[in-house]
Design a protein around this nucleic acid. Structure first.
Lengths: 319, 319
DNA sequence: GTGGTTTAGGTCAGTATCTGTCCGCAATTT
DNA sequence: AAATTGCGGACAGATACTGACCTAAACCAC
């Protein structure tokens, strides 16, 4: 009976690969009679997959979108594209799907054949680091950590603190959270015997030890709240306040979700507040908006912009 | 027999959702005896899915990576993450998987339930347009076009030519190609009776007419070659040549795959050639490298940089 | 070591299901 | 009007599945 199950799966895969199939084609392809194809189609419909059909000389079967996701049957190339897509979505991207991306990525990588994994890794290293994104996170670190969280396994890694001191950590991971454009791990530090948050871009060589632990209760409503609290205690080094000479509604869509706040001043200008640890990225982020602006704070940012201005002037001079 | 097939699928889904399951848990979850679970596991193994098992009190079943992709069973959130990830991968991203991403996206969107499709669209519109990417392509345009290519269906769309004149097109799509950081459609234009290439960022409201056509032979080795040829005839408006005051090997990894070429001059400088239709993006792309440089060509770029320099100087002055 | 727990797997009987064939019907295009 | 295609009922024979029961082997805790 393995045969009928695998045939159903194969039928599903065929229906995903092309939009239209005639019954005869399918019967031929699967090596069964047309009657069986009709029965298999009926079975898939019973399982909830909406398969349309048309009678007549141009008759065909066609898998449509239903109310539930059918199992996706991917070929090698598609699996690679999925993995790479999820990795980019996890690290850069849009509003609030980063954590789901990592979860999906963990599921996918768990079953990703070795040769595909190698190709994904090769593609990943070919990625161009977006220069204004700040320190970048390795997607494989994210998946390693997320897998350890999901499976409740202890984790070891090297960590460099904000002050630059290195240490070796052994933790019970609780959750992996994306906040702003950064990734944080909330975990119980076994050596320190207390909760800690770690910035994923500052840890290296994460490895699951395989040791299971029993979950602890986090002293906060949820992990995101816990991290938010930790962050408030350690704000950005530079907090910028600038006036943009553009209407607030025109620029609002250009500002990343956690990249700062826009407050209208009048019909032609608004105030933009944003922060960063790195002055260069801060300056670039504001310049990238492509509008005229005035810097109010901090003085270091004004200095940085003067330097950038000088560099561009020299560049325009030619050599 | 529908039951055993769907149970196998559900078992596969359970094994993807968590790393370890005991036989009893699975039996309980699926409502069958442990013996049946063991037989189902055996069946899945026969189908090629590598399921590890451990005996003893800590015994468990565990789905590992094999040599082929198992059908992925995704929940709603994961499906959304996949779709969003593929969309970002298709439009921005890395070396040469864009076209595969679109193919995978077509397969996914074909079966994506309507309520998920809405959520994906909502997330997509929340995306921040990266300011240096040039004109952006709508992922739904890409999938519409790719689906029409795959299924051999005629396509209608509105098109704005390079010169800014609008027209309505009716074509037989041949292939969708990513070249540089742009998307091109190669198609047989039914009204003109000839082959044409279209830039996807300049077309609007693509819609499949549902009419099938018989494929034609493209007068070139492949679609990419055909487009490359068309592009050579119509180069960028501005071709920049600048000297970067940095070692070639230090900067090479920062330059996007098709974003230009780096030629070493000496140990401390190199020549960077890149082009764009838009002077602002061109200036930003070079500035973003974050190194000192001198502009040789074109003069318009130097002018643009002087303006940017002035703007930054004014900004640094405050108001 | 010993005992308990877990997977592995053989066997068996009864039942359920699947498959192919044959058939008439309906829908649609030519 | 004819041809093609999907739809689905009926039937007979073959096949496969399930649960029960049993034994073996591995592994962990005591």
């Amino acid at each position: 009976m393995t045969e009928t199950s695998s045939r159903l799966l194969e039928l599903l895969s065929l229906l995903q690969a092309r939009r239209e199939w005639s019954g005869l084609e399918l019967a031929d392809r699967l090596g069964v009679s047309g009657r069986t194809i009709r029965r298999d189609v009926e079975r898939l419909r019973d399982l909830g997959y909406p398969i349309e059909s048309a009678t007549g000389p141009a008759g065909c079967y066609r898998l449509r979108a239903g109310t539930a996701m059918p199992p996706l049957v991917l070929d090698d190339e598609e699996a690679i594209a999925m993995a790479v897509g999820l990795r980019t979505a996890a690290r850069a991207s849009v509003s609030g799907i980063e954590e789901t991306s990592v979860r999906a990525l963990v599921k996918l990588e768990q079953v990703l054949p070795a040769h595909l994994r190698r190709r994904v890794a090769a593609l990943g290293s070919a990625t161009v680091a977006p220069p204004l994104a700040g320190p970048t996170v390795e997607p494989q670190h994210l998946t390693a950590i997320a897998a350890a969280c999901r499976d409740g396994e202890c984790l070891r890694f090297a960590y460099r603190s904000r002050e630059g001191t290195d240490s070796r950590r052994h933790v019970e991971p609780h959750s992996l959270v994306n906040l702003g454009h950064r990734w944080y791990l909330v975990a119980w530090d076994r050596s320190r015997g207390d909760w800690r948050t770690f910035r994923v871009d500052r840890l290296a060589r994460p490895a699951s030890t395989g040791v299971r632990f029993s979950p602890r209760r986090l002293p906060a409503k949820d992990a995101a709240a816990y991290i938010r609290q930790s962050i408030i205690e350690a704000p950005n080094r530079f907090e910028a306040r600038v006036t943009l000479h553009v209407a607030a509604e025109k620029i609002a869509s250009r500002v990343p979700p956690h990249g700062g706040t826009i407050e209208p001043i009048d019909a032609r200008s608004c105030e933009y507040r944003t922060g960063d640890d790195n002055l260069g990225w801060l300056a670039l982020r504001i310049t990238m908006l492509g509008v005229d602006f005035d810097v109010h704070e901090p003085p270091e940012l004004a200095e940085q912009l003067r330097e950038l201005s000088d560099r561009l002037r020299r560049a325009a001079q030619g050599s």
